[in-house]
């Protein structure tokens, strides 16, 4: 499998990447780890004329604390996230999700920024970010903005990211300790359903991926939790259209959402 022809540019900085995005418009795609983009390009489902490589930009590779937040650079690999002590102690829900992604090799190379921009409806991070009430920090020619996770994921392979914007970081509130329960699609290893739960201030925040064409916050569960406890999990699929494929029909996905939510709440 060979991608269609393209030009390749290495951006020297985020601002250079933005300038290049501005120049090439929707002809261009950003490349970080490439583990979402390159497979799609090999199948020629995606055929950008220009690839702007930001994968080597070290300014996007760090995991730091800023005030009440843990800031994860967009170029951090899944492995880096899965093994970071800071994340383990302040935003464990993200590490829990990271360690279920792909496989050893994919985690060594794939990045959080690339995964979020690609927005596969069965990706693992979205559940964790929704549950953590994380923000995705992006930068474009009009400067930086922070997009709440709940607004960022807009549908299958669709995000709030503008054409000229680069995902630069993910910001998670400290104390985003939680769990991620994933039921693997046995071929792709993506989630048939993945449920992340962060418990904060006596309440719960629940993010669900894989079940629907857009990852969602299980607000019905969250609202019922105080009263019903783990039984609130029964509301995990409430009001959400479930996806179907040859691994799992809608009824089974809804069932899994409940089972995994219960497990994650326990």
């Amino acid at each position: 499998m060979i991608p269609a022809k393209f030009d390749y540019v290495r951006a020297g900085s985020v601002s250079e990447a933005i300038a290049l995005l501005d120049k090439y418009g929707d002809e261009a795609k950003l490349l970080s780890g490439g583990h979402s983009l390159i497979p799609a390009m090999k199948l020629r489902l995606n055929r950008p004329a220009v690839l702007i490589d930001i994968g080597h930009l070290s300014e996007l590779k760090s995991i730091t604390e800023e005030g009440d937040e843990v800031v994860v650079g967009a170029n951090c690999t899944h492995k880096q996230i899965a093994t970071s002590e800071l994340i383990a102690s302040q935003a464990s829900v993200l590490a829990e999700a990271a360690r279920t992604i792909g496989d050893v090799q994919v985690r060594n190379r794939g990045t959080i920024g690339g995964s979020l921009a690609h927005a596969d409806p069965a990706a693992d991070y979205p559940a964790a970010l929704l549950a953590a009430e994380a923000q995705i920090e992006v930068e474009g020619k009009n400067g930086r903005r922070k997009i709440p996770a709940a607004d960022f994921f807009q549908g299958m392979y669709t995000t709030a990211l503008a054409d000229d914007e680069v995902v630069v970081a993910v910001r998670l509130p400290k104390g985003s300790q939680g769990t991620y329960e994933k039921f693997f699609q046995p071929a792709s290893r993506f989630a048939i359903v993945g449920v992340a739960v962060v418990k904060r201030n006596g309440g719960v925040q629940v993010g669900i991926t894989g079940a629907s064409d857009t990852p969602y916050r299980a607000t019905a569960v969250e609202q019922a939790y105080a009263e019903k406890g783990v039984d609130a999990a029964e509301l995990a699929a409430e009001g959400v259209d479930m996806m179907e494929d040859h691994f799992a029909d809608a009824a089974y996905r809804a069932h899994l959402a409940k089972v995994l939510t219960r497990k994650a709440l326990a």
Partner: peptide
């Protein structure tokens, strides 16, 4: 437990890659 070629009603193979056709891995 895992494998099966699936065609849709138009005769399209919907299990035509390792993303869609499950095979045993070491941890299965």
């Amino acid at each position: 437990l895992l494998e099966g070629v699936v065609y849709d009603e138009n005769g399209q193979m919907v299990s035509g890659s390792y993303m869609d056709y499950a095979m045993p891995r070491a941890d299965d």
